[in-house]
Computed example of a mutant assay.
Amino acid sequence: MRKPTLQDVARAAGVSYATADRVLNERGNVAEKSTRRVLHAIETLGYERDLHAANLSRGRIYHFRFLLPGGDHSFFRALRQAVDAEASARRTDRVRFTLTEVPTLDSDALARALEQLPRDCDAVAVVATETPRIAEAIGALREARIPVVTLVGDAAPDLRAAYVGIDNQMAGRTAGRLIRMAHIARPASAPGLILPVIGALSARDHRDRLEGARLVLEGGPQLMAPVVVDDRPDLMRLRVSEALEQEPRITGIYSIGAGNRGLIEILAHRPDARPFTIMHDLTPTTRGGLEAGLVDAVIDQKPAQEVALSVDVMKALSDGRELPDPTRDITPTIFLKDNLPAALPSPPTELQPALLPTGDPR
């Protein structure tokens, strides 16, 4: 059965096609009686507007801005590469992307970038930490009718328009379950000691993962106070080395954020006495750790899928359509040494210059 067209709506309402089109696109200058007949016909026929065709006819171009952490962290590089891939894939859909890089876990720098963001786009996607200033900046964009979508970890839930990412508490519970399984043979008198390593407490995804692990580990291996490393490999090397020296009974390490190059260097120097180790996000670094037998499991959140879904969400927000629920669509994957997918060639790390406006901050 074919879908009803606008011509069908006009015929059912007893008006011209032009009148039905004016009602549908809210251009006014239509009698109230005719408007009611058109709206009734739309509802009765179940007419669904072809937004893609409508946007093409109007020459509309969507403009979406991404604010993502810069630097050489493998996961954030993967996010930027995913934006680049979407920019190419969506070109025929008349979608334009602008990517601005901000320092990793620098809340003040991110707040400034949000405050200074040009009000020239349809929506913004951002990897945000939680501070009052960032929440205020997101609120200001909302007041300017620019919806903000948070990526990877949620922030300002009362002000942002949507969150796109995994359920981070579920990911933390998954890590906790793997740790309990690895310690199942230990005696009740010595259940094990787990060192959690996080990037920052202001990152909600890190807090949620830590809380998820804590809930599952209750009554089992003991969770120590977290070591904060700002997602920096140098701080990871320094602070985890200090923790291992101060507490030689550590039997597990849960690396919740990034900076894992530093942790893998530590583990490489103690291959026969290393703790059970779990990391997040399948990157060249964590893959190398799995392949070398230095890392036991990696929980991946599928960054390419997150970026693609964020674009779908921003388009829905721009069109005034019902939002999809991306969290339901992104299920974390547990990678072990035995089930690694084939390594893909590394795509370009930057957006093509043509996709970026002149003077855009990088």
Rank of each mutant, 00 (worst) to 15 (best):
L263D: 04
A53K: 09
N29F: 11
Y254M: 14
V229C: 13
D122F: 02
A308G: 03
A156S: 14
R186L: 06
T44G: 07
N29Y: 11
D158F: 05
T358I: 00
A162Q: 10
L356I: 02
V313D: 08
R232T: 12
E291T: 09
A273P: 00
D230Y: 08
L51N: 14
A78G: 10
V15S: 09
L151I: 14
A190M: 09
V23I: 08
R77T: 15
R37C: 03
T285N: 02
I299H: 07
E101Y: 01
T104L: 15
G293D: 11
V240C: 03
A155E: 11
Q305F: 02
T283A: 11
F66R: 04
D21G: 07
C121G: 12
A225W: 05
K302V: 04
R133H: 04
L67K: 04
L56E: 02
G359E: 01
R60A: 04
A203L: 13
P187N: 11
E115M: 07
E306Q: 15
G219M: 12
H73Y: 08
L336G: 00
P284D: 14
P341K: 00
Q301R: 04
K3L: 15
G28A: 05
P361Y: 13
F76D: 10
S107N: 03
L24I: 07
I61S: 03
G257R: 05
R2D: 13
L105H: 07
L159Y: 08
I184C: 11
H40S: 13
T150H: 10
A273F: 01
R204T: 11
F335M: 00
F64P: 07
I42P: 09
E291L: 08
L340I: 06
T285I: 13
A20G: 05
P357S: 06
R36C: 00
D231S: 08
I253E: 09
R90V: 08
F64G: 02
E115K: 09
T104Q: 15
L344Y: 06
L195E: 08
E265C: 01
G176T: 06
V148Q: 09
I194V: 15
R119T: 13
A343S: 10
S189F: 10
P348I: 04
T44M: 03
D167S: 10
L215V: 02
H206R: 09
A297R: 13
G262V: 05
S255A: 14
A89Q: 12
E101C: 03
I179T: 01
V164R: 06
